[in-house]
Design a protein around this nucleic acid. Structure first.
Lengths: 190, 190
DNA sequence: TCCATTAATTAACCACTGTTCAATTATTAC
DNA sequence: GTAATAATTGAACAGTGGTTAATTAATGGA
């Protein structure tokens, strides 16, 4: 009958989101229950519903957060003091590094299939991609079509997706990443 | 109280596998229940257990079957009576088509993270990739390195992976696929 | 001090799931 | 026609899940 822990810090949205992120990454949206998240935090599952309307909303909050991070990464690279070709290279490598460093975030952003969740978030990925595309387009040596940028993006996506499967750090595949980026960037040159 | 339909054809492994395939493609492994499969066939769910030990065995029977199909697809394309460049194009498109047509199987073959699932089918993807790589290498106009083939494969993989997220049929993205393949094949030319 | 508010617990509800199994029926072999 | 066998049914079991609601405890201000 002991409710409300005395000494313990109160449950916060952030605490829930952190625990949930780890579990979602480890098992995927469908295989994570509210009860599991609560257990990880040593709280009851009901408590989560005090902070989030339901499972989908909790998940969506995570996705939004991670998109902001990627947005910032892109901004930082664009504002670097280097020439355009190097910026392009850094953008592509930066994208891969982000994906492999924040595997959890990447999965949530680009790999989750569940309709229930995707209904919530349709603009998110698109806005981030548009930022990416705009930069690639303006940094490219030659005039590059929308379709070409899309192919470029998908190719980077393929790299990340594959290496995410084996729990690899970015450093372990840095060489391969650089090679892949170099291949892809051929499309941006005359 | 009427068991065993009089007129109806008897339930077979093949019938079950066909119904299951459709559902798995439509909804993914997790979201398909034995009851749904049975319903689609107008049989009771118990009947399936007479033909398959359990859901996993039914699924793996399908996966195996479709690995064979991918292998055959590659073979057929290679044995076509066209020039090498066209064969290459067909190989790449064939791979994408396969991925988008058998989404659930593609996921297991190339996207599933759980070791538990991957353990009993580790040679599968590798053998198929090696066949693919060997053919790309020998059909390529210019001498192409192992790394270059790998980049090519990852780029196709990225295409499939992305469109698998949205429940898209191959036909809906055929144009995009052809463009993507054209981009990727630039790497094989001088 | 009292009391409204906030935060957390727990039980309960309902809709599922994979799987097993006794009972039932249809088919076949004799 | 009968007995043996094969195929099918549907109930039952044991879980799991998301979600809600009643309830309890801590907190801070009047």
């Amino acid at each position: 009958m002991v409710a409300r822990r005395a000494v313990k810090i109160e449950l916060t949205r952030d605490m829930i989101m952190n625990a949930a992120r780890d579990l979602f990454v480890e098992k995927g949206y469908q295989h994570v229950s509210m009860r599991q998240i609560a257990k990880k935090l040593n709280y009851s599952h009901g408590a989560i519903y005090y902070h989030f309307k339901n499972k989908a909303e909790l998940f969506y909050a995570l996705v939004e957060k991670h998109f902001l991070m990627l947005d910032q990464t892109i901004d930082e690279i664009v504002n670097q003091d280097t020439d355009d070709e190097e910026k392009l290279r850094q953008m592509c490598l930066g994208f891969i590094e982000f994906g492999l460093t924040h595997q959890s975030h990447y999965e949530i952003m680009f790999l989750v299939k569940e309709e229930e969740v995707r209904n919530f978030m349709n603009e998110g990925p698109m806005k981030t991609y548009q930022k990416f595309a705009k930069q690639v387009s303006s940094l490219s040596e030659k005039q590059i079509s929308i379709q070409e940028v899309w192919s470029l993006f998908l190719s980077l996506h393929g790299f990340v997706t594959h290496y995410i499967r084996h729990i690899t750090t970015f450093n372990e595949v840095k060489g391969a990443a650089e090679f892949h980026v170099e291949m892809v960037l051929k499309w941006t040159r005359n």
